[in-house]
Amino acid sequence: MAEDSVLRTVLAAVREVAPGAEVNEDTQLIALRVIDSLSLLNLVALLEKEFSITVRDSEILPAHFESPVAIRAFLRSKGHS
């Protein structure tokens, strides 16, 4: 999956768990409270399904989910580029 399509998929997943939120690639998801703890877990579940990955509890860190670009970097570390 190309990097741009990864970012598009991440943005779509964020918009699904935070309907109505204005989100772009640099939106600070946690700091701006676009996502909360429950929507973060829903986002993780969507990403696991979409990218066929497993996200361990120890990997659910604010740094990995602070923005769509950070999520893309996290996915890259899991083998998706």
Rank of each mutant, 00 (worst) to 15 (best):
K49V: 00
R76W: 11
L11V: 01
T27H: 04
I53Y: 13
L7E: 08
E48Q: 12
N42R: 14
H64F: 07
D57I: 14
R56L: 11
L41Q: 10
S77W: 05
A63K: 15
L38S: 04
S39L: 00
V69M: 10
E3K: 15
M1N: 06
L61Q: 04
V23E: 00
R33K: 15
L41N: 10
N24W: 01
L41I: 02
I53C: 05
A45T: 13
L11E: 05
D4Y: 14
T54N: 10
R76D: 09
E3C: 07
F65C: 01
S67I: 08
S81Y: 12
V55R: 13
E22D: 07
L75W: 13
E50L: 08
V34Q: 09
N24Q: 05
S37A: 06
I53D: 09
D26W: 11
E48K: 10
V17C: 03
A31T: 14
V44Y: 06
K49C: 03
V34P: 08
V55T: 14
L29Q: 02
E59P: 09
N42C: 10
R72Q: 12
S39C: 05
A18I: 05
P19T: 05
E25W: 12
T54Y: 14
S37R: 10
A18V: 04
A13M: 01
S58E: 13
D4T: 11
H80N: 03
G20N: 05
R33A: 13
K78R: 15
L47T: 11
L47I: 03
A21V: 02
L75T: 12
L40A: 08
F74W: 08
N42A: 07
E59F: 11
E25N: 08
S67F: 06
V14R: 09
E50R: 15
E50G: 00
L46D: 00
A45N: 06
E25V: 11
R72S: 08
A45G: 07
S77I: 05
